[in-house]
């Protein structure tokens, strides 16, 4: 099975019949890495002929009631108006950026007044095929805000999230893909959600972390997986890594660096986000430390 490349009519609204990612959402978290996410999404949109949906979240504070509980603070109307104005300006800037990038799509402002912001983002994103977000820089405030966004979108939207590192260069669509296989439903969903990337990649390696074996031998457990992917026209190499004293996430990142992978595919939050954030886990390690894009699915 080969990949066929169809010539596209630029600007036409006709849709190719097998478009894998027809609508890509970009979640603007307010962190400095957002521009990288938009650029990455634009590259993918050009490659797959998709439309972009840029979501700018506006977190509005709940109205403060004064001590007597009688009259709401009159000044709050102005605060909201100012915030909405600022939100409108940022949406205009995003729209002009989209026009610069020459990619079809739109930018929208989501007002989170009484709704939890990440739930609002998750709800908006269910109408898309893929969400693109950028990793935070190391400032603690950035990290917690972006992580809350990321976890909410990943767990509640049912859509795969492509996390792109900011400040690094990587080819998109990826040429070498590393799939982290952990025999969980999340990993199965991630693998199938990443299928468009796998089909167009030059090489795909499936890796299982096991504390007993190390080496490049093909696992019998992965044999059916390798065979199934061969049906899709994806040539897969299977390997096992032994994390040793490192965590699984760090072992995956090291392995990805070693094989020069351009994308890591992994299931996200198999154990629950609060437990992972408190105790450490693969998703958290990948979220914080990755140098290449990671596709998560839950």
């Amino acid at each position: 099975m080969s990949v066929s490349i169809h010539a596209s009519a630029t600007g036409s609204s006709r849709v190719a019949s097998h478009m894998p990612y027809a609508d890509i959402a970009v979640a603007m978290t307010g962190a400095p890495g957002d521009a990288a996410a938009l650029d990455a999404a634009a590259t993918l949109a050009r490659a797959y002929g998709s439309r972009l949906d840029v979501l700018q979240l506006l977190v509005m504070p709940a109205p403060i009631i004064d001590a007597w509980g009688l009259i709401p603070d009159a000044g709050f109307g102005e605060v909201y108006a100012d915030m909405r104005e600022a939100g409108r300006k940022s949406v205009e800037m995003l729209r002009s950026r989209l026009a610069e990038l020459a990619v079809p799509g739109d930018a929208r402002l989501l007002e989170a007044l009484c709704v939890e912001p990440s739930s609002l983002a998750a709800m908006a994103v269910r109408r898309n095929d893929l969400v693109v977000m950028a990793t935070p820089y190391r400032e603690p405030l950035d990290t917690s805000v972006v992580h809350a966004y990321f976890a909410g979108v990943l767990l509640e939207s049912g859509r795969p999230v492509l996390l792109v590192p900011s400040g690094k260069a990587y080819p998109l669509p990826p040429r070498r893909v590393l799939v982290a296989w952990s025999d969980t439903p999340e990993a199965a969903r991630a693998l199938h959600d990443a299928m468009p990337f796998l089909r167009t990649a030059d090489s795909v390696e499936i890796v299982t972390a096991s504390s007993t074996e190390a080496g490049g031998d093909d696992d019998t457990g992965n044999a059916s997986l390798v065979e199934h992917l061969a049906h899709h026209g994806v040539k897969v190499v299977s390997a096992t890594i032994n994390p040793g004293r490192r965590s699984t996430g760090m072992a995956l990142i090291d392995h990805a660096t070693r094989i020069h992978a351009d994308l890591i595919v992994a299931g996200g939050y198999g154990h629950g986000r609060f437990r992972e954030w408190a105790l450490g886990g693969t998703t958290r390690d990948l979220f914080l430390e990755t140098a290449v894009p990671v596709l998560f699915s839950h």
Partner: peptide
Amino acid sequence: MATPVSVSSPAPLVSAVDGFGGV
């Protein structure tokens, strides 16, 4: 700000295989 390097052709990449791929 480093931008991702695009290595694809200008035309959109479309896969010839559609469907469930393994029932």
